[in-house]
Amino acid sequence: MLLPLLGLLQQAPWSTIGSELTSPEARDALRLSLVCSLGALAVALVFGVPLAWVLARATFPGRSLLRALVILPMVLPPVVGGVGLLSVFGRRGLLGSHIGSWPGFPLPFTTAGVILAQAFVAMPFLVVATEAGLRQLDRRYEEAAATLGARPWHRFRTVTLPLIGPSLAAGAALCWARALGEFGATVTFAGSLPGRTRTLPTAIYAGLQGRPEGAVALSIVLLAVALAVLVALRGRWLGVP
């Protein structure tokens, strides 16, 4: 398991890594990846937290089906997700053929398209962690707040949110890291144009074909981010207090 990582470290152009990472292509990819992964996280928070709430609290027929559908992108090959997104938002897609002339559309080949692809793949990580947090929550706190007259939104903000904070943060970190590493759905749905849709993983893939040193340097960045996220989450996921 460790060997590929060691191999990567050994191959890294340590003496020139600074200039590799500040080359225009690398800077474009780093900036774009940061913008898109944070955008995808924002989308996931807006849609994912209410979804987690529904899954944890509401009882309705088809809830387990809904949960399965929400988690599906986690196990679906990302490239299939990209094809699916095209079939909906592409120029000949279900929605794309109607809204294609709206400003900002069609989505393929745009930065917004990258954010959508990343959010599609990464949101389940946020939903799953948040739902788990909501289920573990001792609901008596919320009930106490309710008896004290707190309205639902106020109650959610001042009682529920702080209590599920750690789960939400863990979910958000995993979601962001997954979005940052997203390749298959992104390249299928949004293509690969430097500065607009070529994120870090795509730049690494393209770089491997021409300038492997630059690709390895960017790989080191992604590796470092992944490690940082895991270290930050060690208490929650690795069973270490």
Binding site: F109, V187, A190, G191, S192, L193, P194, T202, A206, Q209
Partner: peptide, 15 residues
């Protein structure tokens, strides 16, 4: 001014 620089030629044809 291309909208994408695909990673292999088949992807261009497919797109």
């Amino acid at each position: 001014r291309p909208v994408s620089l695909e990673l292999d030629v088949k992807a261009v044809a497919r797109t």
